[in-house]
């Protein structure tokens, strides 16, 4: 009698059955937006290090290889707070947050438990200097208003790129085609 009002609620809950998910015997629902382990797509990274700048746990390390062949981008999952700020501020969309929440691993594996990516430098077609790759999607945005050969520009170092663009623009000015 004391808890009569609540008794009805209780009986309703009993009728409803278990409220918990059957994991690990059945699947656990994971929403699409779930912020799980961070992934990085090296094909989109330009090495701007904004991700490292905003990361509160200093989880991201970017280091250039001694031979100048490129740089390593390493994120140590154990210091990552899964805040998603790196993803938010990455200008090229290279960083994404997966739906992977399986974080258990052996103590012995903790140091290797990383998202580790190597981003190779390109070699300038004109002068042979090492250059940071510029993803086509970013280049397309940058050069949207210029009538340049984007594919060719991407294979040049910034200096040669300037020269090439200047030459090209010069020709266009001569032709009076610029509005």
């Amino acid at each position: 009698m004391i808890v009569f009002g609540f008794l009805k609620v209780l009986l309703g809950n009993v009728a409803k059955g278990p409220a918990t998910e059957p994991f690990p015997l059945g699947p656990a629902t994971t929403p699409a937006r779930f912020r799980g382990k961070v992934h990085m797509d090296p094909a989109l990274c330009v090495g701007c290090a904004i991700c490292r700048h905003v990361c509160v746990g200093n989880a991201i390390h970017i280091s250039e290889r001694a031979d100048g062949s490129g740089y390593d981008w390493v994120l140590w999952h154990n210091t990552c707070a899964l805040c998603g700020l790196c993803q938010h501020y990455c200008p090229t969309g290279a960083i994404s947050m997966s739906n992977d929440w399986h974080n258990a691993h052996l103590q012995a594996e903790k140091d290797e438990w990383c998202e580790s990516r190597f981003v190779p430098y390109l070699v300038c077609e004109r002068c042979g200097a090492h250059i940071r790759p510029l993803p086509t999607s970013v280049a397309g945005r940058l050069y949207a208003d210029n009538h340049v050969d984007v594919a060719r520009i991407l294979r040049l170092c910034p200096q040669c790129r300037q020269i090439e663009t200047a030459l090209h623009e010069g020709v266009r000015h001569d032709d009076q085609r610029v509005a």
Binding site: P31, R33, R35, A81, G84, L85, H88, M97
Partner: peptide, 15 residues
């Protein structure tokens, strides 16, 4: 919270 923001406690909603 988990469906809209991706986490049950820390929403990371503000910047």
């Amino acid at each position: 919270k988990e469906t809209l923001y991706g986490n049950r406690m820390n929403l990371s909603a503000n910047c």
